[in-house]
Amino acid sequence: MSRADRPADDARPVIELLGVSRTFPGPPPVEALRALDLQVRRGEHLAVIGPSGSGKSTLLHVLGCLDRPTAGDYLLDGIDVGGLPDRERTGLRGQRIGFVFQAFHLMAHRSVRENVEAAALYDGTPRTLRRERAEDAIARVGLSHRIDASPRTLSGGEQQRVAVARAILSRPSLLLADEPTGNLDTDNTDALLGLLEELCADGMTLVMVTHDDEVARRAGRRVRMVDGLLHEVA
């Protein structure tokens, strides 16, 4: 899974946060992240737990270049992304980061295949390669038989698997998942986690926000967020 142009250096962190803060001006001002330091290594599976409003989602958005820290540095694959212009951050999102959302966020009027292919629309991947990869990714999540179906006809578990297929299409080095099992039953949760663990074994880094302790327990490493501060959980 690792990219050919990057050395498989496990010691080098994929994510490096140095005193990262994110303050929402308000009123009243909210300090969602308070001077966080965090390093996540390649292939690591990190679960972020904590009560609602503790800043878990904000952390994920900053990691995904969807939001900018108000202070501190964020290095992604060694690149300081905090000061990059929108275009470069967009490029990073498209080619190095995958997202799985709690609400799936699939395009209802497009087929499963089109939804998954959309992940490689904006990085210059040629059409044939895009189709090939989409088919691979859909096969990987076990939905080849529904490839031309509309997401509206799929169950919640199937929809989330489509979202995962979309997230891994561009072979991101970092997969960010925000409550990916929040809308799934136990069986589907189990299957999804098994899939994500497989991907981690391939060298992908996974950061998952969850409030489900069972789900968090399967992660190799857990951190708890409380009031914008991170605590390692043994």
Partner: peptide
Amino acid sequence: QRDRTPTAEPTSDRDLPRPRMGTRE
């Protein structure tokens, strides 16, 4: 050097991924 004292890496002309989309797409 950077691993010991992490600082902003010059990013101006690096091969940062850029969004690209063909007319056909």
